[in-house]
């Protein structure tokens, strides 16, 4: 996957992961892929909902050693 930028939100709690993701996404162009790292336990549901209602595509996500990784394509 061609990741344009990686955003680290590890250790941050709600609402910081989505606020930071939004800000990072603002700086990208349509079609760019943003990788987001998070440890907030609500992040899977939150970033899925955020992507959906903001018009972006959550390509994939997985958990690795307690860290959630997301790949979001800008719509």
């Amino acid at each position: 996957m061609n990741v344009k930028q990686t955003l680290d939100t590890k250790g941050l709690s709600c609402p910081m992961p989505i606020v930071k993701t939004k800000k990072a996404m603002d700086g990208l162009a349509s079609g760019d892929i943003l990788e987001v790292l998070a440890t907030d336990k609500g992040a899977v549901n939150d970033l899925s909902a955020w992507s959906k209602s903001s018009g972006h595509e959550l390509l994939d996500h997985k958990e690795e050693d307690g860290v959630f990784k997301f790949w979001i394509k800008k719509g």
Binding site: C14, P15, I18, V19, T21, K22, W50, S54
Partner: peptide
């Protein structure tokens, strides 16, 4: 403020 900033982040 969590709801407000969250909503703003959702556009």
């Amino acid at each position: 403020f969590i709801i407000a900033t969250g909503a703003a982040a959702m556009g």
